[in-house]
Design a protein around this nucleic acid. Sequence first.
RNA 1: GCCGAUGUAGCUCAGUGGUAGAGCAGUCCCUUCGUAAGGGAACGAUCGGAGGUUCGAUUCCUCUCAUCGGCUCCA
Length: 601
Amino acid sequence: MDKEKAEKLKPVRHSCEHVLHLAMTDLFPGLKRAMGPATNEGFYFDFDYDGKIKEADFPKIEKRMQEIINADLPIVKEEISIEKAKEMFKNNPYKLEWVDEIEKKGEKATIYWTGEPNKPGSDPDLCKGPHIESTGKIGPFKLLSVAGAYWHGDEKNKMLTRIYGTCFETKEELDKYLWQIEESKKRDHRRLGEQLDIFTISEEVGPGLILWLPKGTIIKEELEKFAKETERNWGYKRVATPHITKSGLYYTSGHLPYYKDDMYPPMVVDKKEEYYLKPMNCPHHHMIYKSKPKSYKELPLRLTEFGTCYRYEASGELYGMMRVRGFTQNDAHIYCTLSQAVDEFVDVMKLHEHYYKIFGIKEYHLELGLRDPKKKNKYHGDEKMWEQAEDLMRKAIKKTNIKMVEQEGSAAFYGPKVDFVIHTVTGKEYAISTNQIDLYMGKRFDLKYIDDQGKEKTPAIIHRAPLGSDERFIGFLIEHYAGVFPTWLSPVQVEVVPVSDKVEEYAKKVYNAFSQENIRVGLNNKNETLGAKIREATLQKVPFLCIIGEKEKQMSQEKGNLIVSVRTRDGKNLGQPRFDRGQIEINKFLEDLKTEIEKKI
RNA sequence: GCCGAUGUAGCUCAGUGGUAGAGCAGUCCCUUCGUAAGGGAACGAUCGGAGGUUCGAUUCCUCUCAUCGGCUCCA
């Protein structure tokens, strides 16, 4: 939904939300209203209720709401004094809290009556508005889900019951919205991941632990291969580090006290030494840096690794491939002098651009994660260090001309960060890449280099992961491509489909011809009709089908060359500009195919 | 972790207080087919797990695990 339309709908949706809590008050005695807004998608409202509110209650709630709408009650605004507001809402701590805030700001309290003001049966509610003039003008609505939500979004507070709903001007718009939700579910990476045999999760192995199936592994390895080639060209050096580490390393880094609950518990060796599964690769790379003294001439030193990490994410957080407990990061740490840091960070941003162009990723935004000014003790390092790091980052951002949303409170504990944020088809937001300028860990790990004056200095460290983790990035790519991977990433690039087993031998020759050229090729010689084989390959999103029948076999004998008919996964074959006839020589097709793979188009 | 929901063959789903049914997939047979589902047969689940109520539970209850929708969190 476009923003303009959403803005226009807000008064209606807000009024619909009032109708909802009016109905709720009727149906659930003792219920207290907390807060709720109109959103871009609809509205929600939080209730404090001791009993259970279930989705099964929706029909009766919707019925009561419809009665209120049909009654066409006026919605009337009234300004009241703070004192009166306090009296009016004395039994509702949530409203009282709000009245206090209004008082602090020196503003006036406004209430909206549903029904004639001050008449028996009319309902006043503290609200800033705006609303539409009467309930009768509320269009078709639907309650969508019930959920728990902490008061003020703070998990230390009481959990309230939140009801989500939406409302439109016309039935068609509501139906279209509901249809779009269903449609987008078809692109959900969890669903496509299963249909396309990309990954599975086994209860026996454990929640949040991805098992890559053969087809998924091809995608993973192609992606890693691409990153490895690119990083080599961009001046990175590959390293490899173990999956477990003694606890001391994480005390040095400060991660252990900070993230203990989010790490798998330690293994105890020889009854004394604790080993942890590594939750991040940074300290290992630091130890590699530290293994020999460094000269300024060696900087910038860019150490990179596909490092596998384990984090004990909260059970409620797990989400397909996007939020997992074991993952392999496209991680690197760039050790450089302070004067190199800006350019190095700019290069990291350019590397993202390079990747995103190839994947055609356009739907994302960037967040500059800064400290929460109210909770500075949450972060390590001194004020000066933070200011310097932020300054370097801003300079780099300025040089790249990239638009960024500043986000207070989302810095790493050791430095500010730049996140590339995408959303899933279900509307969740995830960072697919996170990057930091870190002036903290170098000191913490006592990392040094000798500068051109022969003096010891501490390097700046840039943390970067343009392709995030294999799991999250490929999860994202599945949805981004709707399963239709470009040929270079497709698990099967060409499927050879013989029309009948009379041409099986010839089909095998064709199969071998592709195989010899390192094309990932499949041969469907099952006892099925041609239509069924085409359907199967198309559902598997195989880019090219080579259909082999008597015609191709015969032409091949005449020309002394292998001849195939090519059909693409979107159903084109004849008349497609690349293939001027139904049948083409395999060499010609191979040439085009290899170019397509090579250029990653 | 918290609130709510769900959990039946590989997948999608139906069903019942008296130990389960369909479609698709897989297997076999027939068919040998020209651009998104040819026909048939047999096979396949002890109904997420544990405990309880009951003469008897997949169906009711409790606990537990997992998943889903949110909240909170994300080095």
